[in-house]
Design a protein around this nucleic acid. Structure first.
Length: 309
DNA sequence: AACAGCAGCAACCGCGATCTT
DNA sequence: CAAGATCGCGGTTGCTGCTGT
């Protein structure tokens, strides 16, 4: 009869994650791979809901995540994909593998919405499905507008992707290249996870640089979990050095490659998306661009997911 | 310098889809 | 096949830092 409950509601910790918790989570996922989130709180001793663990991983700790500083191309792509797909942030995020849906959603709500409002592009005129409201405009107008939207979206998509492609050519092994097969860039993408943690810890170190101030960046959240876990730096250590972290994350270690591969293979949303068959609309989008002398998106798709074709 | 308002972002909540037993 | 748990997504909230007064 069904599965056992994922987590008890009682005693579940909420609020900002501490660096200790992050480290516990990352090291656990490095060892076991993402997925089976139900088991994560139990096996790690984290007093967090499995949902919270998954969210923390996908939105913050997952390898290959770029944070902040959205480029013009990304911005453009988001705007047009939003016009095309509506508020389907996960779908939009699949076109921007370095960005999380939460990040895109936040960026849309805080920056782009206002920007578009300022420009008078009428974001409000869209329904939740992303299509302009039928009620406010006649059918003919709506169809024309839809066609224009689609055309513009396609163009922006091509532009944005061609920039990515160029970047990838000039910096072919860069971990930030979102369209490379992740398994081929596993070490560097995993390193970027380390970078995430390192950045986090840097902030933590800065915050705890004050004598006696040995607490997480959230300030109010105490760190009882780490001290209960023998495998993680205790709060008393206060400032972990980067070297142990590198070993913790398995950098430059061939022995960890297997787990990393499975880790990325199982988790990374872009890969999952890329391996799924394109929707009719997406395929059409890609096909159309091929015939217009633009960057061959089909080539890109072939590069990324050869098994699809 | 102190306070209020605003903006940005991390995390939570609720719901539908999917999966497991 | 049904029941119930898990997963994933989108909307929303609340905290924190910044800016203006």
């Amino acid at each position: 009869m069904g599965r056992p409950p994922c987590c008890d509601k009682v005693g579940v910790k909420k609020g900002p994650w501490t660096p200790e918790e992050d480290i516990i989570l990352v090291s656990y996922i490095q060892e076991h791979g993402p997925g089976n989130w139900r088991a994560v709180p139990t096996n790690t001793g984290l007093m967090r809901c499995s949902k919270s663990c998954r969210l923390r991983w996908t939105n913050y700790l997952r390898p290959g995540i770029k944070r902040g500083n959205f480029t013009d191309q990304e911005e453009k792509l988001i705007i047009h994909l939003q016009a095309l797909l509506g508020n389907r942030w996960a779908a939009i995020a699949s076109y921007l593998p370095e960005r999380t849906d939460n990040d895109i959603k936040n960026y849309w709500n805080t920056h782009l919405k206002k920007k578009l409002k300022k420009l008078g592009t009428g974001v409000e005129g869209q329904t939740s499905s992303g299509v302009a409201s039928h009620k406010s405009i006649s059918k003919g107008q709506w169809e024309r507008r839809l066609q224009t939207d689609i055309k513009t979206a396609k163009q922006a998509l091509c532009e944005a992707l061609s920039v990515e492609k160029l970047n990838s050519l000039s910096d072919s092994k860069a971990s930030s290249n979102c369209y490379n097969n992740w398994s081929s860039t596993t070490p560097s993408t995993y390193a970027s996870s380390t970078e995430n943690i390192s950045r986090l810890l840097e902030g933590w170190i800065r915050n705890s640089a004050r004598p006696g101030a040995c607490q997480a960046n959230s300030g109010s959240v105490k760190t009882e979990t780490a001290s209960s876990q023998g495998t993680t730096p205790s709060a008393a250590d206060c400032i972990p050095s980067p070297e142990p972290l590198e070993s913790l994350f398995g950098l430059n270690s061939s022995s960890t490659e297997g787990s990393e591969t499975s880790l990325l293979g199982e988790e990374s949303k872009p890969v999952l998306e890329a391996h799924e068959p394109f929707s009719f609309f997406e395929s059409w989008l890609l096909d159309e661009s091929v015939g217009h002398g633009q960057l061959s998106l089909l080539d890109m798709a072939l590069d990324d997911a050869p098994e699809l074709f």
